[in-house]
Write a protein that binds this DNA or RNA. Structure first.
Lengths: 69, 69
DNA sequence: ACGATATGTAAAAAATAGTTTACTTTGTGT
DNA sequence: ACACAAAGTAAACTATTTTTTACATATCGT
């Protein structure tokens, strides 16, 4: 994959709004806590499925959580 | 990852609308032709970055191309 | 009939996502 | 000061995506 656009996200913000811990979110979307931390720290590029799960959890669109410039 | 929701896509449709070959799309978004074929055949769950690249190519939202039920 | 282009399959290798475990740090409440 | 929960780091492991290569089939123009 190229190093074109930058992927960032507002996961921490949405998470705080709902008062969820990273652990809570991890459990709700079915991944480990490490995965949530890594996404919040922009360590990698999650799968589209996981992006959809997170969007569904917060009742928003994928593009509300994840930004690509 | 769980086997919750099903991920499908309309990539072939958007591609045909623009008259692009799989090869064209692959080149434009910077992946191999196999990757495009595999996505169209729902063989897997692409990365979010790639989903964004495809959406950008067709000037639509990620959720216009990819459906998650 | 021939060459060129588009689509498909398959399988091994490389790259990256996601898990697990264990330890550290930071904040908050008592 | 202490205990506890939340957040962070790191490393080794597993699972999955993506690449590469090679070959098959179908279609289209000449």
């Amino acid at each position: 994959m190229f190093e074109s656009g930058q992927l960032t996200n507002r996961l921490a913000v949405y998470r705080a709004q709902k008062g969820y811990s990273q652990q809570d979110v991890a459990k709700k979307v079915g991944v480990s806590r490490q995965t949530i931390i890594s996404i919040e720290k922009n360590r990698y590029n999650p799968s589209l499925k996981l992006a959809f799960e997170l969007a569904r959890l917060f009742d928003v669109g994928v593009e509300d959580i994840f930004l690509y410039q």
